[in-house]
Nucleic acid binder design. Structure first.
Lengths: 394, 394
DNA sequence: CCTGAATCGTTCACGTTCGAACATGTTGCT
DNA sequence: AGCAACATGTTCGAACGTGAACGATTCAGG
């Protein structure tokens, strides 16, 4: 699924306006695009993309270059004499991945930066503290940044030391999708993060409302998100009075492809033994694989096994399409830039802000119409109540 | 229009208004619609849908595209011109006090509202859920408010019921200085609150840094702030490895003036017995009284007893002036209005935001130059390190 | 500076979608 | 009942979005 042309799987091709919007997203996420790459990705001809790019260029939203387009650059003389004032500040941004999850965060950040008239410099990094620090240092040394948005690795002593170092930087720092401990060594760090525990809770309650009374959880503890998902799952289970012992809770950290298949088999077996009819699966990538595995082994989804994924990157591609909790990635980037802009404008008098955002649940086929009929009669009242309460978040 | 409110009978075609509403629902659910698809789904001709779409586009609710419609897009240049910003909103604000703490919050809210071109209607209330609700209801009934900022009483079953009621209101609600539980019954409530636990921690660390090794805590549990202060005190004590047992921790809830004097005497006695040389006192009003009491009874402040107040309303009036943790009241109001303005502008697509703000410590005479000289030599290093770390927040 | 390869824009063709004009059915009012 | 106002459906020529072919242009590497 990497370089293969993956024409947008959903039925109808995109409208031109949507296509241009997505094109801008890609542009903001990666800084530049190629005509051929986008054409393949969107499943349309290159000519169409060229026309889009030209239109966007006429509106001054992109800079045309041979073979593709970039974000509007001051070097682009075709900039229609627009009174673009000089960038007030430059913000560095260091994220741990440029292919998964983060492009949308970057896209949101760039969109907000444009409104605030800021410049953003993005660098990818590995998922470890040492490289985080190296990338930040590079921005500090070679670019002239006035602020830093970063999603550092916070695990272990090295992570703590990195936090301490970030806290002591002479420029303002905003963490994205990370929470600094609200204590002294990191008290100057502002942050914006998704409340993944809430998201997991919404997913569990949705499954409960669909009639499931045994709800399992599969996560990958090598992701920084995982602990929060597990916490939210446990909290929701407690609130719904589902006992934790006897519930399926599995971790697939560090499994290869072969192991994974075995692991899925074991999970299905566990589910059978415990009567578990629904699973919350962290990382929708893994959810897609799990659904695939179920379908391949004759387990009906959602009939025998309902599934909600966590993260909504590729969930819609699966067959059946997977319900997924969608973190507000774009807003994470937006808010990070808002915090930074306000900090740069207002200085030290402004109190440290810390922002949590709620994700939303996107309901697709993999989680509706499960075992509801079995228990519908006796649970009608409770389900109706839950439905009303949940309404607003869907 | 058609005055009969005919509940939707299957088979009967929808009225145009209902149809447009459902069209918007489809749009919000899928991000885009096709004329042909919707026409088939609603069982009407494509032309009808086109007319609906055009009307909605004229109102700026959708973006017209060839073959269908999408959610309003900034790339849609037909929308940019009309842009009716003249529509200003009214926000109701209900706070539990109009003479203590809240005036500054209101002031900040008013300042931000002016910038955002909003109108604010403030009502005072008592510190109980029933009256909170009454005041909110009055705003809803007699003013025409588009949003609500409120600091409700959340204690007990009545408080929970109030939260549930607020959550179900048809207008957006932002809590000020209150945290709704991040769970389902209140999942639509946004809030902004000061991290009082952090503030208490800063105070404790400041006293530690001044050389104190036994630090007590005096609060008034009848205030909603108190539990957080106590929690922060305990956390900081744990982090600094000061044992909780043997530490002075007192509550002055519901004491009259005479009782209070006795209580202060008892506290001073406890401090003598336990070797406590510093106290964190919640509500600076009480801190002022306590300092007064100390001075009147020959206890030197800060020589024999260092004091940091929590809240910074009147702390500077005491003799000696009292160091105090100052919550960013003005910003609480500002952020509440910012959240509301953004919510009103962006609608339901915007994820729920929850914001925490850090207070700052204002150091005055009541907490400097205490017992430091006694232990300075051996603790120099540690104190210096803490000093550096604390610097930014002061 | 030259050359091959990639990229670009123009023109044409095809199918879909659009909207004006007119026709018809429905609702509400006098 | 009759009429007016409105909502909806049908028809048909025009407009639009897209893709293929082909010649013109630009780029990269000697």
């Amino acid at each position: 699924m990497t370089s293969e042309n993956t024409p947008e799987a959903s039925g109808r091709p995109l409208f031109s306006l949507q296509r241009r919007e997505r094109l801008m997203d890609e542009l903001r996420a990666h800084g530049s695009i190629t005509v051929s790459g986008i054409a393949a990705k969107f499943g349309v001809s290159e000519l169409t993309i060229r026309r889009d790019v030209n239109q966007l260029a006429d509106e001054g939203l992109v800079s045309r270059v041979h073979g593709g387009a970039t974000l509007p650059s001051p070097l682009d003389r075709s900039a229609s004499g627009s009174h673009q004032q000089a960038h007030t500040y430059s913000i560095g941004m260091v994220v741990p991945s440029l292919d998964y999850y983060w492009p949308q965060v970057i896209s949101g950040a760039r969109a907000e930066a444009e409104e605030q008239n800021l410049r953003i410099l993005v660098r990818g990094s590995a998922y470890d503290a040492a490289d985080n620090r190296k990338q930040v240092q590079a921005l500090l040394d070679h670019q002239n940044i006035d602020g830093l948005i970063v999603a550092p690795d916070m695990t272990g002593a090295e992570g703590q030391e990195l936090l301490r170092w970030l806290n002591a930087l002479p420029i303002p720092v905003v963490l994205a999708e990370r929470r600094s401990p609200g204590e002294i060594p990191a008290h100057r760090l502002e942050w914006v993060a998704t409340d993944h525990a809430f998201g997991a809770g919404v997913a569990v309650r949705h499954l409960w409302q669909e009639g499931h009374r045994k709800i399992g959880c599969l996560t990958d503890s090598s992701s920084p998100t995982s602990p929060h998902v597990v916490r939210g799952w446990k909290q929701a289970m407690a609130a719904l009075k589902i006992p934790l012992e006897g519930s399926v809770s599995e971790d697939s950290a560090g499994l290869g492809n072969g192991d994974r298949s075995e692991h899925f088999d074991r999970i299905l077996e566990l589910c059978r033994d415990t009567g578990t009819t629904a699973m919350l699966v962290h990382s929708d990538t893994q959810a897609v694989a799990f659904v695939q595995h179920c379908v391949d082994h004759g387990v009906d989804v959602p009939g025998s096994m309902s599934i909600v994924g966590y993260d909504d990157e590729v969930a819609y591609l699966a067959e059946p399409a997977i319900s997924a909790v969608r973190p507000p990635k774009r807003y994470v980037g937006r808010v990070a830039v808002q915090l930074m802009a306000a900090r740069l404008a207002e200085g030290r008098m402004r109190p440290v802000h810390r922002v949590e955002l709620n994700p939303e649940l996107v309901v697709r086929d993999s989680s509706v119409g499960g075992p509801r009929n079995v228990t519908a009669g006796s649970l009608q009242g409770s389900a109706a109540q839950d439905s009303q309460e949940l309404e607003g978040s869907l």
